[in-house]
Amino acid sequence: MLTLRLSNPSKANALDLAMLAELDAQVARVTGDASVRVVVLRGADGGPFSSGADIGQWAPMPPEVFARDWIAHGNAIFRRFEALRCPTVAAIEGICFGGGLELALCADLRVAGPGARFRFPEVGIGAIPGWEGGPRLARLVGRGRALEAVLTGREIDAALAQAWGLANLQGAGHGFEDELAALVQRLASVSPHAAALAKAAVLDDGRTPSFHAQAGAAIKASPDSEIGIRAFAARATASF
C-alpha cells in the first residue's frame, strides 16, 4: 500500500499547483512500480481532506490562462490518477470541498469518517466545479442529486454521503481506521492483474465493444488466472 497525504496545512489542504505536480509525480511512480497494490489518498489525521482549490492561485489568472494552466492541466492529472492500474481509496475525515471533492471522486472508493463533510461551493462564488466533479458525482449518485449538490452548494455529512453512494463506507471514531485497513487488505489480496483489467472495464463503461473480450483473454493468459483456478479447485484462498 502507498499512502499519499495532501499537505497544505495553512489552507486546510487547499490544492495548489505544487500539490498537483506532486500528485502527478506520484501517479508516474505508481505506474512504474508493480509492487504498489493499493493507493490511499488522505489529508490530516482526523482533520481536513481538502478545503478545495487554492483560490489565491487561480483567482488572479486571466481566463485563457486559467482555462489552460488550471482547469485543463488539473483535469489531465486527475484523469491519470483515476486511470491508475491499481485500486485507489480516498480516506476522508474532515472537510472535502470543491476541488478536494473533485479529487476524491477520482478515487475508486471513498471511506468517510464521522466528521467528513462534502460540498461543492463554487456557484456561490461565481465559479463551477471545473475538474469534472459534476459528471463524476452524477455517475455515482444520479443526475438529480448531483445537480442538487452542485447548484445549491448543500453540505453533505458522512451518513448522507453513504446513503447517496458518494461514500462506500462510513467508519465511526476509531472504527474509521479499522474500516479503512480492512478495505485496503481486501483490495490488496485480489489478483493485481485482474483488478487492473476489471477497473479499466468499469471506466470504459462499454464504450469499446471489444474491450471485455480483449481483457478477458489477457487475464486468462496470465499466471494469475492459473493461480485462481487452482485455488478454486482446491477450495483454498488464492495468494497473488
Rank of each mutant, 00 (worst) to 15 (best):
G100W: 02
G32W: 06
A231L: 12
Q162N: 06
R154C: 04
A91M: 03
P62M: 08
V111K: 06
F120S: 10
L169F: 12
R186N: 04
H193A: 11
A238S: 15
L101M: 14
S191N: 04
E64F: 12
A91I: 04
S50Q: 03
V150L: 10
R29Y: 15
S239Y: 07
V202M: 06
P121A: 01
D24R: 10
R230P: 05
V36E: 07
F240I: 01
W131V: 05
D45P: 10
H174F: 05
P48S: 14
L15T: 01
T152A: 06
D33L: 06
E177L: 15
Q162F: 11
G144H: 09
R29L: 15
P121T: 09
P48M: 08
V190Y: 05
V40T: 10
G142P: 11
A14G: 01
R37M: 00
N75W: 10
V65W: 13
A188F: 08
F81M: 00
A53M: 12
L147D: 09
V27K: 03
A201C: 11
K11C: 00
D224V: 07
V65K: 13
P209D: 06
D16Y: 05
R154G: 01
D178R: 07
S225T: 05
W58Q: 02
V89P: 04
E148W: 13
A163W: 06
I229D: 13
P9N: 10
G32T: 04
H212R: 15
K11W: 09
E64N: 14
D205C: 01
G124R: 11
S51P: 00
